[in-house]
């Protein structure tokens, strides 16, 4: 399996990533891509900017390990995970998970699996700057933890 993990301030081109994922093998019959975007509000407040912090080194290790687990569950050809850090603005792309496989079911499932574990295990933290100038760290959500149960049965 081809694996690519990038954690950086740089934006990404979804079209180019799709070509990269689909061109690994002529056996590829499905590419599923998820793109997470920054919203302009959270918990009823307008949000102007968001700052993403991470634990360099550990972040990449955790993501590689999550991808490895996905690779053991589904037959995959390629996985690309990109996560941005630094200052982001509403509608900016934050995260990309792309999976290629022979069949769509495997690609859909693996993409969701990787995203669910990335949200709960990869050491990233978001700090929001609200329209009134207040800065606050985003709290982890129980719903993200609950999402893991479907993979644990």
């Amino acid at each position: 399996m081809d694996v690519e993990v990038r954690v950086s301030e740089a934006d990404f081109d979804v079209g180019a990533e799709c070509v990269s994922l689909s061109s690994k093998t002529r056996q590829c019959g499905a590419v599923v891509q998820f793109v997470g975007l920054m919203r302009d509000s959270n918990q009823g407040d307008d949000v102007l900017t968001m700052e993403l912090e991470h634990y360099p080194g550990m972040t990449e290790r955790r993501i590689f390990e999550i991808i490895d687990r996905a690779d053991h569950r589904w037959p995959l050809f390629a996985v690309t995970v990109i996560h941005r850090v630094g200052i982001l603005y509403p509608q900016d792309q934050i995260v990309f998970v792309g999976v290629s496989a022979a069949h769509r079911h495997d690609a859909f499932q693996a993409c969701e699996f990787i995203m669910d574990y990335l949200k709960t295990e990869a050491p990233f933290w978001k700090k929001e700057c609200k329209a009134d100038g207040e800065q606050r760290w985003v709290d982890a959500r129980q719903t993200d933890q609950n999402a893991l149960t479907r993979w644990q049965s």
């Binding site: 550990m58 934050i94 709960t120 990869a122 990233f124 978001k126 709290d139 982890a140």
Partner: peptide, 10 residues
């Protein structure tokens, strides 16, 4: 050794 709060990426 690192100590950190629950993660909020993605």
């Amino acid at each position: 050794v690192a100590f950190y709060p629950p993660v909020t990426g993605g």
